[in-house]
Amino acid sequence: MIEPAPVRFVAKNMRVDLELIAGMISPGSRVLDIGCGDGILIDHLFRTRHCDARGIEIDMAEVTRAVAHGLPVMQGDADTDLSHYPDDAFDYVVLSRTLQAVERPREVLRQMLRIGTRAIVSFPNFGHWSLRWQLLSTGRMPMTKAWSRMWYETPNIHPCTIRDFFDLCDREGYRVEHWLAADEAGRRAPWRRAPLLANLFGEQGLFLLRHDQRAHANRSETTDPAR
């Protein structure tokens, strides 16, 4: 339904899975969208689902655009700014196509599931057959629509596959409440029950996570950042 935007940063091309993500969010929830770009998901959640949706975005031009549209967005960095939120401040924390671009993906996920009850994570799947084929046949870093920047200038410093992500969730004790693979245009791909096939044919993975046993005692202490 929505034209895919030109890929500037992979992380910013979030229009395509907006519908899929919005479909995972209950109406009236508190939502934090990390790497929210110009805030299209926040706007969508506010208007169609009456959510209290807020955003963090690293690119100041995007932040200005979002705020000028009346959206509650602040300039910030997923790697450093999540630690300032209190525990359980949100029902959902969304990280759409940004995980592969952050410095410390595992820590960002931990923070997401500390400040939110659930995390929604989408990322371009590096296990897709066309990437595998390009690497095998040419012996060089693959270039596709989603992975469109040369290795020396790509912001996507932590690529992973759908299988890798399942593995990380397992290690970290995150329950995958829902997952799906989708193509670039955000259409759901039909490999719901077959992770291996999804990992081969899905262009992006989308996960709804929850902490298995939330270790409340071991929460990291937040400190007052103001002084």
Binding site: M60, P72, M74, D81, H84, A226
Partner: peptide, 21 residues
């Protein structure tokens, strides 16, 4: 301003924060 934004986050307040170039 950034420190204030973070403190407001800590208070779970609704905050927008922009630095104008």
């Amino acid at each position: 301003s950034r420190a204030m934004a973070r403190a407001l986050n800590q208070a779970a307040a609704n905050v927008s924060f922009v630095e104008i170039v």
